[in-house]
């Protein structure tokens, strides 16, 4: 059962990154869209993410619940030493979630819309940025349970070049996912071209930010290069991801929009695989060589078993209905496109 739980944890993180990422990316795209196109982008995006919007952030909640039920030591260590970035991420989540809803349900459309939009756009940037910082900090070996002053314990645990680079990388990935996702949302060719341009830009940005992460890892003496290149899984995943980027660039001008989405999702999956494979099951690396392992820090067996069953049972209900939700809205949208 432990492995079922760990698999669910991994998948929940992945889905949050892909689906939630596309969702954050929507706001990031808006930030980088010229004023005259903002409204159109917003409308297209809303049609795309509206129906599944509420479901997206559930992946984050599931991640958290798995951690505190199954691996309490890991949850509490992160809560204590990464308190500040977690707090800032939460502020982003609050601002974003409410602004998104407010701007669509406010009965009067007036200047308040500008306020909601501003909040939505900036918090769409902040949330994945701190999410990336938190993920980066888990492996930088800066979390120090023996720290005896405020700065070492609560600030330098996350404020370092590598974590910041991972934060930027996460933002770029979100923008990329959203841009690829939105291409197939519109039948209008000029619109589509505009989104393809955006997708290209964000893809380049993501590659550059990825490079930055590598440089930062050298600077912070994090063996990132080893994680990628000294094991067959890392090398294979890296090669497949690179090939899929190349392929993606060849099909931009076709109308294989679903394939584009699949490729983008695939790339993110490979990135997560590379970054977690080598040091699995240790998900937090501590200062001085210590670590927190999913295997050693697991809760008692009865709890893990119950959690595993709850997750399996839950997915029996959730997955079919979630797919049906996405499918029905995809279908009605395609019908609308055909009648266009």
């Amino acid at each position: 059962m432990l492995y079922v739980v760990i698999l669910f944890l991994w998948i929940a993180i992945l889905l949050y990154l892909v689906l939630g990422g596309a969702d954050f990316g929507a706001g990031i795209l808006e930030l980088f869209t010229s004023d005259k196109n903002k409204d159109k982008t917003r409308k297209t995006m809303y049609r795309a993410i509206g129906p599944i919007w509420e479901a997206n952030h559930m992946w984050l909640i599931i991640t958290i619940v798995i951690l505190f039920v199954g691996f309490p030591q890991i949850y509490t260590t992160m809560s204590i030493y990464l308190h500040i970035p977690l707090l800032l991420m939460l502020m982003g989540i609050i601002a974003r979630g409410t602004a998104f809803t407010f701007r669509h349900y406010d009965a009067v459309k007036d200047e308040m819309q500008i306020v909601y939009n501003k909040i939505f756009v900036y918090s769409s940037f902040i949330t994945p940025f701190f999410l990336g910082i938190i993920a980066g900090s888990a492996v930088t070996r800066r979390i120090d349970p023996n720290a005896n002053n405020f700065l070492d314990a609560y600030i330098f645990s996350w404020l370092n070049v590598f974590s910041l680079a991972v934060g930027l990388f996460t933002v770029a990935i979100c923008g990329f996912l959203a841009a690829v996702f939105i291409i197939g949302q519109t039948p209008d060719m000029t619109e589509r071209k505009r989104f393809i341009r955006k997708a290209k830009t964000f893809n380049i940005a993501a590659v550059l930010a990825g490079g930055l992460v590598f440089i930062a890892s050298l600077y912070e003496k994090i063996p990132l290069l080893n994680w990628v290149f000294d094991n067959p899984v890392g090398i294979t995943a890296f090669s497949l991801a690179t090939l899929s980027v190349i392929y993606l660039w060849r099909i931009w001008s076709t109308d294989k929009t679903n394939l584009m989405r699949a490729l983008a999702g695939f790339q993110v999956t490979m990135i997560l695989l590379i970054t977690t494979w080598k040091h699995y099951p240790n998900i937090i690396l501590l200062k001085g060589g210590g670590y927190l392992s999913l295997i050693e820090e697991r809760g008692n067996d009865k709890t893990i078993a119950a959690l595993g069953w709850a997750l399996l049972l839950g997915s029996l209900f959730i997955l079919p209905s979630l797919f049906y939700l996405i499918y029905s809205f995809q279908k009605t949208k395609e019908e609308a496109l055909r009648n266009h």
Partner: peptide
Amino acid sequence: GMPFSLEGTAFF
């Protein structure tokens, strides 16, 4: 934690 994990399903 049990109610929280089931609650997750209900929320979803």
